[in-house]
Nucleic acid binder design. Structure first.
Length: 113
DNA sequence: AGTTTGACTGGAG
DNA sequence: CCTCCAGCCAAAC
């Protein structure tokens, strides 16, 4: 039993990045997914932060619907003002506090294995 | 090799 | 609802 967290090898980190981009590319119009959920689907449940880093720093990630990724509270990315507009253009509704209405728009996938 | 940095999360106040 | 804090972990300093 490992009493310490797994650490990604360079190869695992590369594969993780590919999985994240692949998952994000499949988010349907008008739906959103959380960083944590994407990390889980990619097989690394505790790497939500790395999902954010991947979308932020990977060249070409802006060609994917990465505006459909928000945090678990429905909050949009810090400093990316246009994200809300992009979402509203595809029918995503926001609450009074400026958060996405997750109850209505969060896209949930089943973990198959 | 030690420290800081986040497109995160969960919990406390 | 908001802010603050601890835990998180690869990357960048």
């Amino acid at each position: 039993m490992k009493d310490y967290p797994d650490r990604m090898t360079a190869e695992e980190a590369r594969a993780f990045g590919e999985d994240v981009l692949n998952i994000v590319s499949q988010i349907p119009r008008g739906r959103v997914m959380t960083y944590g959920h994407i990390a889980l689907l990619a097989g690394w449940p505790s790497h939500a932060r790395m999902v954010g880093r991947t979308l932020r720093y990977t060249p070409g990630a802006d060609k994917l619907p990465c505006h459909r990724v928000v945090n678990k509270e429905g909050r949009t990315a810090p400093g990316w003002k246009r994200q809300r507009t992009l979402l509203e253009e595809e029918g995503v509704t926001f609450k009074a506090n400026g958060h996405v209405d997750m109850e209505r728009h969060q896209w949930k996938l089943i973990i198959d294995n």
